[in-house]
Design a binder for these strands. Sequence first.
DNA 1: CGCGCTCCTGACCAAAAAGGTCAGGAAAGT
DNA 2: ACTTTCCTGACCTTTTTGGTCAGGAGCGCG
Lengths: 151, 151
Amino acid sequence: MRVSAKADYAVRAAAELAAAEEGPIKGERLADAQDIPLQFLEHILLELKHAGIVRARRGAKGGYWLARPAEEVTIADVVRAVEGPIAHVQSAPPESIEYRGNAEHLQEVWIAVRASLRTVLEHVTLADLVSGQLPSEVESLAAQPDAWVAR
Amino acid sequence: MRVSAKADYAVRAAAELAAAEEGPIKGERLADAQDIPLQFLEHILLELKHAGIVRARRGAKGGYWLARPAEEVTIADVVRAVEGPIAHVQSAPPESIEYRGNAEHLQEVWIAVRASLRTVLEHVTLADLVSGQLPSEVESLAAQPDAWVAR
DNA sequence: CGCGCTCCTGACCAAAAAGGTCAGGAAAGT
DNA sequence: ACTTTCCTGACCTTTTTGGTCAGGAGCGCG
């Protein structure tokens, strides 16, 4: 139930790419801007590339850019590219698990957990993230003061 | 962003305890009912005990029972007892992280993620789980057909 | 063409977490 | 006293996490 450094890095790098309007951006510039270890970041960018989220060119004038417009890339896309499926239980998707006895309805709970994560992660695009204009449902979740205190 | 076997086991065992109305239940019976390795389960039950969720007695007629009524124990309580805080980012609570540059609003997104997890996990009690009567918000999340397909 | 720049890739590594097992001790009941 | 059941710590293997290192491959420019 935690967000890995890798996923956090990936989203931050993607946000930088979404913000840059001109040409390819070098890995080093992304690493500097977001304070991410360069060599680790390049592995992450490679995964994003394989997932079709990012494109790249080598050589002088090379760098990375988004494969699609920032309005069409969600945070869920980025997270899935580096962490795999969201909200798996025991490394299996919740819809495939069979619960017995008094835990029978636990499946619905994990499904609801996944659905609620999706309502946030699949609705915030990189463009939203950069502009700070989050979707209203997400905004209202983050707006309640309660959400900002640890438990 | 995944649910560990330990957390899944913990909730299932807690559900069995919530369902049992008479006296202490032996670890072995819980393990059998939910198909959990006994020795692993006992470690989990110990953690639940230390968290004040479960109580136990040794010897013949011994076993485990809920420290509080099942209506007052949420799934979030159980998950936190064995997995620690929900939705930490890079092992730190999202409200403590400072984001720079174009990722500035990422903090709000992670806060929203945590809030959305809480609306599910903190509102479903063990009594709800056993009876299958989930809170309406959770029910409606799990009801959409979309929630049941993998991505 | 050649050279430098930058991405690309695989190998490697240490530390932590996940998912258990084993052996023994301590309390409760009979 | 003896059995039962929880309690506890030590240990174990495999996977994941969070990186680093070394070299190769493609791109652009003079």
